[in-house]
Nucleic acid binder design. Structure first.
Lengths: 346, 346
DNA sequence: ACGCACTCCGTAAACGTTTACGACTGTAGG
DNA sequence: CCTACAGTCGTAAACGTTTACGGAGTGCGT
C-alpha cells in the first residue's frame, strides 16, 4: 500500500473524501466512511507521517533533551527510565511519540536545542539538568515552543517546571537530625552553578536558622552527585577539625561511596555519624546499615510532567486542566538505621 | 526564518541553488555557496525535516522498541540507558535521532510495530525482548526494513542480532563451580517461551554433561528475572529435598532477593550456598558477601548494535564493515566472595 | 565560425497529506 | 417556482524540500 491516492483509486472515490473519512470529519456519509475504514484496514494503509506533518505543521513528537555522557549514565540509576515510563503513559494516550535528544558533550546545549527546534522535528520539549541561569528557557519562551523543565531555574520569570521539594527535604532532614541532638550538620551539594546546588543549600541554611543553629560554610561539601562524590565527601568530612555528627546527602547514590570511605576509617554510619539521603537510587537500597532517605515515584513524576506539558499545548489543552505554571514535587521520608541513634552530649 | 524560499529571496537566488549549496552538491559556485551558508547561519535557517523526509523518503530517525511496563522499569536498572547511550554515540555521528517506541501492554507488539513502520516515521528499527518465535522478525525481514535485534530468536533463519554469550557464561559458571567441588548446581531462568530462558538452560545442560553430571529438571527454577524472582527462587531452593550447593542466576538483580530469603533461613551465601550472577546490575554490586558475576560494558554493546545496524542501511553501509549477520557478546568474570569456598565432601 | 565540453543556475515536478472552496444533489419552506 | 439549506463529495492548492532536466554563458580546439 503506497498512499492515500491508491486507496482512493481502489475505492473509486476522491482522495479528499478518503482523508476526511479517515480523520473522522463530520461531512462524510457514514456508509462511505465504513467502506473507507474497511479498505484501509484490509490494505494496511496508515497515513504517512511526513506528509501529514508537512501539511499540518505538527509532528506528534515530543523531544526529551538528555545528558548522555558516560558519567551521567553511571549516575542515573533508573531515574531517567522511570520518568520516561510515566511520560509515555501520558503520551501514548494521544498517539504522541518521544524523541530522545542527547546533546553532544562538545556542543552548547542551547545551540543544539535551537537546531532541533528549527528542524521542526518536535512539537514540544522537555528539558532537564537545569542551570541556574539557563538560556534554553529564554529561547523556548521567546520562540513560543511549548516546553516543560524538570528543575527550576532563575531565567525568564515565569515558565512551567516541576521540581523536587528541596526546601521540604532540607527542612525535614535538619529538623529530624536536630531532634536527635545534632548540632553540627553537614550537607553535600553540587556546584552552585547548577540551580539544584544553590536552592538546596539555601533551604538548609534557612532550616538551620529556624532552629537557632549557625551556618558554617565549611560544612557545605561541594562534590559530584555520584558514588565517587560520596567517597570524596566522606574524605573531606573526616578531615574537618570540629567534625560534624550528621550529614545530609543530595543523592542516595553518594551513600555508597560515603559508607565505604567511612568504614575505611572505622567510622560507622548510624552510630558515629548520622546519614540521610535524598532521591531514590535503587542500588543504594541495600546498604548496611539501611539508609534513611526521601523517596518518590519516578513514574508519577513522569505522568505529572507529561500532563502539565500537554496542558500547555493548544491541541491537547482541553484534556488537562492547566494546574498553574509549576509544581513542587513532594517526597516521602523512609526511616532507616543510618540516623536512628540519639546523640548524647559530649 | 520560514523556509528555503525566503532564504532564496533574500539572496536573490533560485531556491534550487540554495538547496544544492546547503547540501554540498558539486555543481554550485564556491563563492555562491559561501554566501548561502553565511546567510543561512545569519538568519538561522535549518531545513524543515518533514519536507525533507517527504521528498527523500527517509526520516533520519531510528526506532527503538521497548517494553515500558512498571515491572520492566523496576528491573531494568541502567541496562536500557547504558545501551541507549552507546547507540546515540554512533547515531549522532550521522545526525540520526533515536525514537523510543513503547508498545502499550494491551497491544500486540507486532501490530504496534507494523503501524509505526507504516507511518514511515523511522528508517530502521531496534527490537529487543525477543520471543522464541518472534513475528516481528518475519515482518521486518519481509518488509525489508533495516533492523537489528538484541537477543536471538528462532524466527526467520538469518537476521542480524547481537546476543549475550549465554553459552559461555553457563559453561564457565558450571566449570567454576565444579572445580570447587559442587555436584548439584541449580539454575534460574525465565519461561522457556522467552528465547533467553531456553538457550540459557540448554547451555547449562550441555555444560553439565561435559563434566559428567546428570541434568536434574527440578534444579531449573523458572522465576521472573527480578529481585522478587530471586526471593522466590531461594524459597523454592530451600524446599528441595536434596538441596543444591550452588546456584547460577540469570540476572544479578535476583541476587538481592535471593540473599534476603537465604538470610531469613540462616543460610549464608558464600558459605552454605555458592552464588554466581549474570549481567550487570549496579544495585547488586554492594551485596555482602560480594557477588561473583559476569559483566560487560553496556555502552560498548550499544555502540556495536548501532554500527551493525548502520552497516545494514544502504545510506551508511560504506562507513561500517558489515561484520557478518550477528554476534555473540562476551562477558567478563568478576570474582567475588559468593562462590569463593571449596566444597568439602559430606 | 562552429562545435563541444564544462560550469553554474533556474524551472518545475515530485513526495503524501489536509482542507478551503465550490459543486451537486435533494428537501423544505415560502 | 424560487430560494435556502443541509448533506456529500470532488478539485486543487498548499506545506518545504530535493532533484532531474535543460538553458545560458564561457572557454577552447578545430
Amino acid at each position: 500500500m503506497k498512499g492515500i491516492r491508491q486507496l482512493a483509486e481502489h475505492l473509486a472515490i476522491s482522495i479528499g473524501t478518503v482523508s476526511r473519512a479517515l480523520n473522522g470529519r463530520p461531512d462524510v456519509n457514514e456508509e462511505t466512511r465504513r467502506r473507507v475504514l474497511a479498505a484501509a484496514e484490509a490494505l494496511g494503509y496508515v497515513a504517512n507521517q511526513s506528509g501529514r506533518s508537512l501539511r499540518q505543521g505538527e509532528t506528534k513528537v515530543i523531544g526529551l533533551m538528555i545528558e548522555s555522557s558516560a558519567e551521567a549514565v553511571e549516575n542515573a540509576d533508573n531515574f531517567f527510565l522511570g520518568v520516561t515510563s510515566g511520560l509515555q503513559h501520558v503520551f501514548t494516550r494521544h498517539k504522541l511519540d518521544l524523541l530522545m535528544l542527547p546533546c553532544p558533550s562538545d556542543e552548547d546545549p542551547c545551540e543544539y536545542l535551537k537546531r532541533m527546534v528549527a528542524r521542526r522535528v518536535v512539537d514540544a520539549m522537555i528539558i532537564s539538568n537545569m542551570q541556574r541561569v539557563d538560556r534554553r528557557v529564554d529561547f523556548l519562551s521567546r520562540a513560543r515552543i511549548p516546553f516543560i523543565a524538570v528543575g527550576r531555574s532563575l531565567s525568564a520569570g515565569n515558565f512551567p517546571w516541576i521540581d523536587l521539594d528541596f526546601e521540604g527535604v532540607a527542612e525535614r532532614a535538619v529538623e529530624r537530625l536536630v531532634a536527635r541532638g545534632h548540632r553540627r550538620i553537614a550537607i553535600t551539594a553540587p556546584s552552585s552553578e547548577v540551580n539544584l546546588g544553590y536552592v538546596f543549600v539555601e533551604s538548609y541554611r534557612r532550616a538551620l536558622e529556624q532552629h537557632g543553629l549557625p551556618f558554617d560554610p565549611s560544612l557545605v561539601i561541594r562534590v559530584k552527585s555520584s558514588e565517587q562524590g560520596g567517597y570524596q565527601a566522606a574524605h573531606e568530612l573526616l578531615l574537618l577539625e570540629d567534625r560534624p555528627t550528621a550529614v545530609i546527602l543530595i543523592y542516595e547514590l553518594m551513600a555508597i561511596g560515603l559508607y565505604r570511605r567511612l568504614m575505611e576509617s572505622g567510622v560507622l554510619p548510624g552510630r558515629d555519624l548520622a546519614v540521610i539521603g535524598f532521591r531514590d537510587a535503587p542500588r543504594a537500597r541495600f546498604l548496611q546499615p539501611s539508609l534513611s532517605c526521601f523517596r518518590m515515584s519516578l513514574y508519577d513524576l513522569g505522568v505529572a510532567l507529561g500532563e502539565m506539558l500537554l496542558a500547555r499545548m493548544p491541541a491537547y489543552r482541553d484534556f488537562y486542566s492547566d494546574a498553574g505554571g509549576n509544581m513542587i514535587w513532594p517526597l516521602e521520608l523512609v526511616a532507616g538505621e543510618s540516623d536512628a541513634f540519639q546523640l548524647t552530649e559530649a
